[in-house]
Design a protein around this nucleic acid. Structure first.
Lengths: 231, 231
DNA sequence: CCAAAAGTGTTGCATTTACACCCATGT
DNA sequence: ACATGGGTGTAAATGCAACACTTTTGG
């Protein structure tokens, strides 16, 4: 068998990417889903997705799909899982690599999203989605929870400057449990990975809450010395 | 655009599976690697792999590849990651889903493995492998460590009956750190997920060490009640 | 002046770590 | 009788969870 035939005898497959895009809007964890515009399943709820092109890495395909619907680039995005059941897509045999992304919901291109039929829905009011997309969402949520516990990825969901209340609320949303205000503060501040700003956010109280910024550089320094983030 | 053309316009890809097969041989964590028998890279070290066939799920393809080289079925196997860089395989554009498996090294078909040019190599004397296979191994090891910390997957590497010393040695191998004998015993026994057998293993000491068996059913019961395994 | 969110410490309890000697037995 | 790995308990330190009041200020 020569080199040529070794690869040529092998069947080829459609490969798609699907994106589970998380956003945090004030106090709620939300997902970007679209009304599907193509058959099969036209009009049904779906994740945003697309096919991997020739000469395009699957990571690049996922980034492209994300940009198409949100206008955003250089976003936190991680491969979730590759779904390869033969009949998972009712239109054809499609292997799907799912990616989950954490974006700052405020910063995305609302108009672009609207043009694509995209909607931000809260997690607990998610409708049934096509194919195995509901399963993907369940898997992504589990992954987000696992990941956010030991890595400071949550900050990707918040504006650059945030209050400790916002931060705590975000974690409460992710884990669906209330966190003690004092213990949370103590823990997160003791990590020394937040930069306290002079500015205050007065939008939610008369007194105003200090704004903080995640100090990524400092986090990386500490990590090298053995520090492990944990919520 | 009709349904037919929607899928037909899309490029198709070769999809491979590669298996990172871990085994624990007495006291060492090992990996099954082969001397590649086809071009390109014939004769180089490689993970065992194969192409996803038409009508075959990617999980099934991985299970098939595992069986081909070890003779084993119904093995703990988890998808690691899908590697999709365009140039990762120098022979053609191939998207690879990597799986990692934990097997009881004693139970595999040695002869079959040998026929496939397979060798068990210790982790820290692993040669350079083709393509991105070394990267896959690094990722798999990290995943094994993450997974074994909170899930009782380590038992998949041990014989059905094992001593606490074997169990501890296995974790020491996985994490490359020594564990206190008494504290380890205390912790693992307090979980109530091990069944103590009457039998003793006298192969490593005059006195003989009690054999234990992982009680999977019990573990699942406890898990339902909120128990979380942790080493 | 009052409503509403921000900010602040202490204590008991549980968990984790460190650590050293006796036991059983085959040779 | 002795060498070898198996098996056992306690005390100190650390980390974690529970808990309530004061501060600020815009309206």
């Amino acid at each position: 068998m020569n080199l040529q035939s070794f690869y040529e005898e092998v069947p080829r497959h459609l490969v798609a990417v699907d994106c589970i895009i998380f956003g945090f809007d004030e106090s709620k964890l939300k997902l970007l889903v679209i009304e599907r515009k193509v058959d099969p399943m036209k009009g049904e709820w779906s994740l945003v997705g697309g096919f991997v092109q020739t000469g395009e890495s699957i990571d690049a395909a996922a980034a492209r799909v994300l940009k198409q619907t949100t206008g955003l680039e250089n976003i936190f995005m991680d491969q979730l899982h590759c779904y390869g059941e033969v009949d998972r897509d009712s239109g054809a045999r499609v292997i799907a690599a799912a990616y989950y992304a954490l974006i700052r919901i405020q910063e995305h291109d609302h108009q672009l999203a609207e043009e694509h039929g995209a909607h931000w829905l809260e997690l607990h009011q998610m409708p049934e989605l096509i194919f195995d997309h509901s399963r993907m969402i369940a898997d992504a949520l589990k992954r987000l929870r696992d990941n956010a516990r030991f890595h400071p990825v949550g900050f990707e969901l918040l504006p650059e400057k945030f209050t400790l209340s916002q931060l705590r609320t975000m974690y409460e949303e992710i884990y669906q449990e209330t966190l003690d205000k004092r213990n949370f503060r103590k823990k997160i501040l003791s990590m020394n990975i937040l930069e306290k700003l002079e500015e205050k956010d007065k939008s939610t109280s008369k007194k105003g809450a200090h704004l903080y910024r995640f100090d990524k550089l400092q986090y990386e320094q500490l990590t090298k010395k053995g520090f492990v983030f944990e919520i």
